[in-house]
Amino acid sequence: MSTVIEQPVEARLVAAAPRMPSIPATLQYDRRDPFAIRMTFPAPATLEGVEVCWTFARELLASGMEEAVGYGDVRVRPYGYDRTVLEFRAVEGTAVVHVRSGELQHFLRRTTELVPVGLEHLQVDLDHDLAELMRGTC
């Protein structure tokens, strides 16, 4: 069984222009990092012209589909009956994208099949992670 789930999604960038342009993005979940989700935007879709990857909690995405959540760099909230808003804040500015809620629900269902909610801790190898942190410090 694969340890990684990837799913392309269509994000709509909220901008000052009346039409929101679509930008490709990829959601990724890795069983070896069971609490996190990564959302990657390819270089052509970013102002800097480099790939940008945001990492945030799976729980944040799931909760944000029901109610507004997040106080830091990533915020998530429902929008209408079929969209979810993801807000990414950085020193350079804020990007706001809309994603179809159905796409996010499908992705979250797949992650839950791989690692059920509440059992994430069983995937974490604390001894290995601590050894990696300590490598080369002595």
Rank of each mutant, 00 (worst) to 15 (best):
E10G: 05
I23F: 05
Q28I: 12
M20G: 14
R58K: 05
A15Y: 08
L61C: 07
M134P: 13
A17P: 02
A36D: 05
Q7S: 13
T84E: 00
R12N: 06
H128T: 06
R83W: 14
F56P: 09
L86E: 01
I23H: 03
Q123R: 05
V9I: 11
I5V: 01
T3F: 10
Q7V: 08
T46S: 07
I5Y: 00
T111V: 04
G93C: 02
T137R: 10
F56M: 11
Q123H: 09
P116E: 09
L27F: 00
L60P: 10
R19Q: 15
R89V: 02
R100S: 05
L60Y: 03
R100V: 10
L47C: 14
V117Q: 13
D82H: 01
R32Y: 10
R12P: 04
R110T: 12
P8M: 02
M65Y: 02
Q7N: 05
L114R: 00
E66P: 14
T3V: 12
T137D: 04
R58I: 01
P116Y: 11
E66F: 08
E6Y: 02
L104Q: 04
E51S: 09
P24Q: 00
V124F: 03
H106E: 15
Y81W: 15
T111K: 02
A36G: 04
P34E: 08
A62E: 12
V96T: 07
T26L: 06
F107K: 00
L27C: 01
L133Y: 04
V74A: 05
V9K: 03
